[in-house]
């Protein structure tokens, strides 16, 4: 098996709040990102998927745990040590407008990383090299070269997301963490951007961690899926295995709750009660037990750990759904 691109072992991210309270945004998460795969991170708001995404790129410091990128331990690496690795790991954010400086032209925005970082030979890039690379990037993301001379507000949301993708691609990264990159877009435009992610992955041999709350979008793009609930991974495995035969009651409930654009004759389904509990005071034992239809006494006491169910799938549940 090929060596994983990124390995996370028992990573934790705790935020200190007022009055001595703490928020465990990411609680003991271990995962691997293999080269060429798309790992989808799904979950509802507050489940820690965005924080985990930022931890994986060390955009935020870890509270504890170990993080390896291309074999280098970056769990506690300084910004200076990280800098030469940065070109190979990039991020795309949800809000395409907030991510682009409104007073700068697209060409300047995209040239910046090329000016800051040296090329593979350790040389500064010449003006001509940068100009050529910018044209190449525009071609990759399907925008006209004339876009380089324009400002962010002149573009639609979908086009701005293309620009953000182009910027992430500028330094030829291996790994891209995309945090809800299509959720602010209209559905017709969303499909274009999802297709663009798929095409770029194939053309450039990229690896993605794709964070989204929309299960259908995650299913479309991901090879593997990790489902998060209140800071922990509750289920992880091949996309089709997890989404067709979910083993964790939360995964099953999440799938059942997605409104599908087909008229169902029998519209009865089990709904989860209540909202996601506050991550400041998460429930004891299994964090899902307060909403779980299968919960038993044990679930309120022991927190289940991720264990294998065979079929390369891990689930954190005392009473997984089988068969």
């Amino acid at each position: 098996m090929t060596e994983p691109l990124l390995v996370a072992r028992s990573i934790r991210k705790t935020y200190r709040l007022n009055r001595g309270q703490t928020l465990q945004a990411v609680d003991d998460v271990s995962l691997e990102v293999r080269p060429g795969e798309v790992l989808g991170l799904v979950g509802e708001s507050g489940c820690g998927k965005s924080t985990l995404g930022r931890c994986l790129l060390r955009l935020t410091d870890l509270t504890s745990g170990e993080l390896l990128f291309e074999g280098h331990d970056i769990s506690r690496a300084s910004e200076r040590t990280l800098r030469p690795l940065r070109p190979r790991m990039q991020m795309v954010f949800q809000d395409s407008y907030a991510s682009l400086n409104p007073v700068r032209r697209i060409g300047d925005l995209l040239a910046e990383p090329l000016k800051i970082h040296r090329d593979v030979h350790g040389q500064r890039r010449t003006r001509a090299t940068i100009a050529a690379r910018l044209e190449e990037l525009m071609d990759l993301v399907g925008l006209p070269v004339s876009a380089l001379a324009r400002y962010p507000h002149e573009f639609s949301g979908g086009q701005r997301q293309r620009i953000n993708i182009a910027r992430a691609l500028a330094l030829s990264p291996r790994l891209i963490v995309a945090d809800e990159p299509v959720s602010a877009l209209d559905v017709s435009v969303q499909a274009q951007i999802v297709n663009l992610f798929t095409d770029l992955k194939e053309r450039l041999g990229l690896t993605y961690v794709f964070i989204a709350h929309d299960l259908a979008v995650v299913r479309q793009i991901s090879t593997r899926v990790a489902v998060m609930y209140l800071g922990t991974i509750v289920e992880m495995g091949e996309t089709d295995t997890v989404l067709h035969t979910p083993a964790h009651p939360y995964t099953a409930a999440l799938i059942a709750a997605v409104p599908e654009p087909v008229i169902r004759l029998h519209a009865s389904r089990t709904l989860l009660r209540g909202d996601v509990p506050s991550p400041i005071a998460p429930p004891s034992g299994c964090r899902f037990h307060t909403r779980c239809p299968k919960a038993e006494a044990r679930c309120a006491q022991d927190a289940p750990t991720l264990r294998s169910l065979g079929d390369e799938r891990l689930v954190a549940c005392h009473f997984p759904i089988v068969g």
Binding site: S156, G158, D186, V187, S188, V189, A191, Q192, V194, N195, T198, D199, L215, A216, V217, R219, Q220, L243, H244, I255, V258, E260, P261
Partner: peptide, 18 residues
């Protein structure tokens, strides 16, 4: 809209433009 069940299309049929 990407389907949640059934086969996954390699690419989503999308509407060009805005």
């Amino acid at each position: 809209i990407p389907p949640l069940t059934g086969p996954r299309p390699a690419r989503l049929p999308s509407i060009a433009g805005v």
